[in-house]
């Protein structure tokens, strides 16, 4: 298909620029002026008339060829515009995604550093026995919980915001698990798991071996008293036990 005709370009190329002084010198006192719209309208009318005459004279085969060329040109133009649009959108989306991912990566990195810091801090406090509920928290276990939480929130194909939300959720869940070891960490004390015997023993064996405590307690007398015996109560309780068996 030939290149489409630009009427405006043809006029511009065919026209000559003449200054008003030159026109005056040539003796032109008046000039007839045609505005651009009028020129286009006249051309359109002329072209339409010619096309109508040609089409009227054209054979069915020629008409079909013209129609096919027009359709083909139209489709080419549509496709070209579509590709340009897609390319531009792709470029913009890609830039925005890259920026968001960089931001998300930075936040993930910050969360991981914060978690590592907390892990270290909690581990140290557990070691020193300064954390209420510390005896119930094994630093190794806590560490594995944190790693698990981060792993669960690893980047996925669902996008950076989903990654962040997952990481956030994991951290919150982890926070709840950790704080549940201490008072008020949960809205219901009945949901808190009791510290294991092993965790308690490990904690106390560490604290007793590492601390050299200076004290005079063994040299000081403790307040003493004598109370009435409990044999009567004991006998009653034992008989109650036997009765219930």
């Amino acid at each position: 298909m030939s290149k489409p005709l630009s009427v405006q370009d043809v006029i511009r190329q065919s026209a000559t620029d003449v200054g008003l002084d030159e026109l005056s010198r040539r003796g032109c006192r008046k000039v007839k002026v045609l505005d651009k719209q009028t020129v286009f309208r006249l051309i359109d009318e002329a072209v339409n008339r010619v096309v109508e005459e040609r089409l009227a004279a054209a054979t069915a085969q020629e008409r079909e060829q013209i129609r096919a060329e027009a359709r083909s040109e139209f489709q080419r133009l549509v496709k070209e515009r579509q590709e340009q649009l897609e390319e531009r959108v792709q470029r913009e989306v890609s830039a925005a995604t890259e920026e968001a991912r960089a931001h998300a990566d930075q936040q993930v990195q910050e969360y991981q550093e914060r978690l590592a810091q907390l892990e270290s801090q909690v581990g140290q406090e557990v070691e020193e026995g300064r954390v209420p509920g510390a005896s119930a928290i094994d630093p190794e276990l806590l560490g594995s919980m944190i790693r698990e939480a981060v792993a669960q929130a690893a980047p996925t194909s669902t996008g950076p915001s989903a990654d962040l939300a997952a990481l956030q959720q994991s951290i919150e869940a982890l926070s709840r698990k950790v704080s549940a070891g201490g008072p008020g960490g949960s809205s219901s004390s009945s949901s808190i798991e009791p510290p294991s015997e092993e965790a308690l023993q490990a904690f106390f064996s560490r604290s007793s071996s590492s601390e050299q405590v200076e004290s005079n307690i063994s040299n000081v007398e403790v307040k003493n008293a004598k109370a009435n015996g409990v044999n009567k109560n004991l006998a009653k309780l034992r008989s109650l036990k036997q009765g219930s068996e």
């Binding site: 209420p132 509920g133 005896s135 119930a136 070891g181 201490g182 008072p183 008020g184 960490g185 949960s186 809205s187 219901s188 004390s189 009945s190 808190i192 798991e193 009791p194 510290p195 015997e197 308690l200 023993q201 904690f203 106390f204 064996s205 007793s208």
Partner: peptide, 23 residues
């Protein structure tokens, strides 16, 4: 016993003293 007017962790307290006695 479980307090009715506060959310306190009886189980932790119980575990701590159980552990102290064990030690």
């Amino acid at each position: 016993a479980e307090p009715i007017d506060a959310d306190l962790n009886v189980i932790y307290h119980q575990g701590v003293f159980g552990g102290l006695l064990k030690s």
